[in-house]
Nucleic acid binder design. Structure first.
Lengths: 151, 151
DNA sequence: CGAGTTGGTTCGGTATGCGAACCTTGACGG
DNA sequence: CCGTCAAGGTTCGCATACCGAACCAACTCG
């Protein structure tokens, strides 16, 4: 079994592997935009500020990597929009960690807040079952990928 | 007051600010190496696999950004090693999130999950007031640099 | 004295990033 | 019909950034 990590320089590590997929300048900003509801090319373009052709390339790469899914919403003229796959949604913890760090160490104004209907939105760990925000008492659980998720 | 975020394209956001500091190809790998105990130039070089001059530039940038601290351990010949500052240590959650994602989607390794009381925990954007998970249609409610803060 | 190590810098070719312009398909207004 | 506009890209050409190879200065060890 060939492993993508083998082609990377340096220490063999999942961090390097993840960065190989989403470690360029625009990829995580694209994921941020899509996670915030910007699904169309032009919305993502505006939200990220990336150059158009870079964005084209990035979107294609992220679709190929399985982070985004392209959905055609008009056959003619051909128009697509972009949605997060499960892999894409699973990048949210990375964005949250980056945002917290940026809030603390980069932004010298009060951190930028996301709002909807006048309410502030924050990043949280949420229990899939309870729907409850989780503060402490998180257990790290290692599960083999071939084993089914716990019921 | 000038804010570093103002110089970035796209939506004004701490994520973009954080990526401006640690979003290039080698920065987070350097932080990983230092956090794993590689403090000398040659150790970091070997662990990351980065080209030498890139590493020189990256180390200087990370010292300037306050992520690393350079300590001279020999006056002649001038020799320094590198240590994490508090800001650098605070990047560990980012590395952990990336590692978890890489474990699951890039590497052929068993993934790691978080659980509490037997329930799986995932990350979401959550409205502080409603407690509601946010997905679609949030974009127009997001405050950006062109829009005044809500009162 | 000569070879080796550390921690870099310099150099030149190449890959990548970027902005400007262009293209195609269709919608809309007159 | 005809002209114009918008979405969603693609093509082009230049400028920057990246990269490997070579070089270097200051020791240290044999």
């Amino acid at each position: 079994m060939t492993d993508r990590l083998d082609e990377l320089p340096g220490r063999r590590c999942s961090i390097a592997g993840a960065l190989d997929v989403v470690g360029d300048r625009w990829a995580l900003l694209v994921v941020r935009e899509v996670s915030l509801g910007a699904h169309r090319f032009s919305e993502i373009l505006r939200g990220t500020g990336a150059p158009r052709e870079q964005l084209t390339a990035r979107l294609n790469a992220l679709v190929d990597a399985g982070v985004l899914e392209r959905r055609q919403y008009s056959a003619s003229p051909p128009r697509s929009d972009y949605h997060l796959t499960k892999a894409g949604r699973d990048l949210l913890p990375v964005l949250q960690a980056l945002m917290q760090w940026g809030d603390r160490y980069v932004a010298d104004e009060p951190p930028v807040e996301f709002h909807h209907s006048g309410h502030r939105i924050t990043a949280s760990w949420v229990c899939d079952v309870c729907g409850e925000k989780v503060g402490r008492g998180i257990e790290r659980h290692v599960r083999d990928r071939h084993e089914p998720a716990p019921a």
